[in-house]
Design a protein around this nucleic acid. Structure first.
Lengths: 232, 232
DNA sequence: CCAACTCTTTGCGCAAGATCAAGTACGGTC
DNA sequence: GACCGTACTTGATCTTGCGCAAAGAGTTGG
């Protein structure tokens, strides 16, 4: 594989505290692979052969229930580590990662992880921070699902998307990958129908905009107030 | 502080891969502290001054919403590490840990963590596994809350409690710390009333038993079928 | 340009659970 | 042993959001 330009990965949290030489050495072991829109980077229950850093594009990570329902765990944005199943002590992936647009990732074989960690102890520490912050997110989501009603959950989900993958434009904050109402439903534990109704209402109030697979937040602050359940 | 008997902590996941001497050295830096039933080991948003291993007792870890609702994050059983806020990159605790019975924990100052990790890289790796498996749990819970109705969520919650803190007795599996219907409600995102109704129904079917703050599963397998939504 | 598809909207009826309102039983204390 | 507070039960009512149906609107491709 062609070697990877270091500038692409400098400053990534995973590599914090490593010397440029160490980073170079790690990069030499990585491949860079392209995933066409709609393809799966890995699948639920598949053997965890690799771990990744997303260089370009966006992924949708979801779980499938026995009766075929999907639940979106998160979206992966460029720069993030994903598929670290091996590091957290699993032998298979706990979810499916699917490219929502054409994407490129750096790929290491999972088998290299123990050696990499032994050589660069900082890797474990950095990964611990990453996994820890995902744990925070998951708990936040549990709290929201336990105590908030749909409208506020949807508001929180959109704000999180905006924060993670929002692009500021004149008219507001644009989510910079295609996302359906169904996706939002699967992030919030609501139905497609309910999400559609809520978004329609917000659109007519000028809070958000966006048609088919497009989502833009026009009034982030008002949406925030709504998410927190504060008076208008 | 009195020195801690090594037999109490041998075989704990946190210490996996450390030599007995290394464990001894770590123990010398720990205090063992007693927490009376009902007291808080640490509180939400408090500075994360320490991290812990529970030696004896049971803790209830919960978050508080702005409007005062509690959501139970998990229960801590003896042998588990908790309060590792610092390790996952926080300066404050993200939740409150409260002793549900008189409890004893080993306590290290958070400030010692970076040095301990530098000396024993295995610590970071082990903690990563622990945090990773909590992340799994949290995601499982999100999936359950998104796709299952209350009855099945309650069944899953009880099964998880039984697995983690169940004591097998002749008549079934006894949860070996006091737990209220309110607690179960706060674990499942249901109301006290709904939980009470469901448990009453199960009790009359002989599925579970237990009165005030007592919970015992008499038919684990039937409860499992119910949790998975399988026919009788 | 039309066909086929996917995504989205909207209306209507219904059910799972929440909320409210009494109560009852259990344990601990003086 | 009487009292008190906390946990639990049970019933009646109300609301949120789901399920389903049907149709509208972009998108892609022949």
């Amino acid at each position: 594989m062609a070697s990877v330009d270091r500038s692409l990965v400098e400053g990534l949290p995973l590599f914090a505290g490593l010397t440029p030489e160490q980073v170079d050495r790690m990069l030499q072991e990585a491949q860079s692979i392209r995933y066409a829109k709609g393809t799966n980077v890995f699948q639920h229950d598949e053997e965890a052969h690799s771990f990744f850093i997303l260089l370009h594009g966006h992924l949708r990570v979801f779980k499938l229930t026995p009766d075929g329902q999907q639940v979106v765990v998160r979206f992966v944005a460029p720069g993030e580590v994903f598929g670290v199943a091996m590091a957290i002590g699993r032998t298979t992936y706990p979810a499916t990662a699917q490219a929502v647009v054409d994407s490129i990732a750096l790929v290491w074989p999972s088998a290299a992880w123990p050696r990499l960690v032994a050589t660069h102890p900082g890797l474990a520490v950095n990964t611990l921070q990453t996994v820890g912050s995902r744990l925070q997110d998951a708990h936040t989501r549990v709290v929201e699902m336990s105590t908030e009603q749909v409208e506020r959950r949807i508001a929180h989900a959109l704000l999180r998307l905006a924060k993670q993958s929002g692009r500021k434009v004149e008219a507001g904050v644009q989510i910079d990958f295609p996302i359906t109402r169904q996706d939002v439903a699967e992030m919030t534990g609501a139905t497609l129908f309910t999400v559609s109704r809520v978004l329609s209402a917000w659109e007519s109030q000028g809070l958000v905009a966006g048609g088919r697979q497009r989502m833009m937040i026009r009034e982030p602050h008002k949406l925030f107030l709504l998410a927190e359940g504060l008076p208008d």
